[in-house]
C-alpha cells in the first residue's frame, strides 16, 4: 500500500509552502487563464506573457487548493518560465504521460511505447517528484489541473481570436 511519503515528497511540500512565481501580470499584454476543479474547489489562475518569438517570457500563478494542486502549479511555473511554447507543450505531454494520461490511449492505440515517446528528450527534473501521485488516483486531477490550464492558456495566447 502506498504511503504518504510517496505522495507528499519534500520538494512538493516545499513548493506548497513557498510557491514560486506567485502574483499577477497586467492583462494585456499578458493573457489570463483560469482552471477549476469543481469537485474539490481547486482553482488555478495563470498569467502568461508569450513574446513575439514564441517564448513564455513571464508567467505568474495564483489560486487556491490542496497541496498537490498548488505545488504542481508552482513546479509547472518554474519549469515553463523562459521556455519556448513548443517546449512547454512537450513538457505538458511529458507530464501527462508521467500521470499515465496518454493522448494516444484515448484513441485506443496505446501500446506502452507512447510513455517513452512522450518522455523522450524531456527533462522533467523536480516534476518527477509528482510521480507518486499516480498511486493515489483521486489526486491525479489535482496534479494535472495546472497543466491543463497551461495548455488552454497557450492555445488562447497563440490564437486570441478563438478565445475572444
Amino acid at each position: 500500500m502506498p504511503g504518504l511519503e510517496d505522495l507528499y515528497r519534500e520538494i512538493i511540500l516545499d513548493h506548497y509552502r513557498s510557491p514560486r512565481n506567485r502574483g499577477e501580470l497586467a492583462v494585456p499584454p499578458a493573457h489570463k487563464v483560469e482552471g477549476f476543479n469543481p469537485l474539490c474547489g481547486d482553482e488555478v489562475v495563470l498569467y502568461l506573457d508569450v513574446n513575439a518569438d514564441g517564448v513564455v517570457e513571464d508567467l505568474k500563478i495564483n489560486g487556491q487548493g490542496c497541496s498537490i494542486s498548488q505545488a504542481s502549479t508552482s513546479m509547472m511555473s518554474s519549469a515553463v518560465k523562459g521556455k519556448p511554447v513548443a517546449e512547454a507543450r512537450k513538457l505538458i505531454r511529458a507530464f501527462k504521460a508521467l500521470m499515465s494520461i496518454h493522448e494516444s490511449k484515448l484513441d485506443g492505440e496505446s501500446d506502452g511505447s507512447d510513455l517513452a515517446a512522450d518522455l523522450e528528450g524531456v527533462k522533467l527534473g523536480d516534476l518527477e517528484a509528482l510521480q507518486g501521485v499516480v498511486k493515489f488516483p483521486v489526486r491525479i486531477k489535482c496534479a494535472t489541473l495546472a497543466w491543463n490550464t497551461l495548455a488552454q492558456g497557450l492555445d488562447e495566447s497563440e490564437n486570441p481570436a478563438a478565445s475572444a
Binding site: 504511503g3 504518504l4 505522495l7 469537485l39 487548493g65 490542496c66 498537490i68
Partner: peptide, 29 residues
C-alpha cells in the same frame, strides 16, 4: 489553512475516514 483533501489524505494514514469537499452543498459553501 490546510486544504480538506490534504487533511483527509493524512487522516487516512491513521485509519480515520473523514469526507473532504463540498458535501453536495455548493450554495452553502
Amino acid at each position: 489553512g490546510i486544504h480538506a483533501h490534504d487533511v483527509s489524505q493524512v487522516l487516512d494514514e491513521d485509519g480515520v475516514c473523514v469526507r473532504a469537499g463540498h458535501h453536495c452543498a455548493k450554495p452553502l459553501m
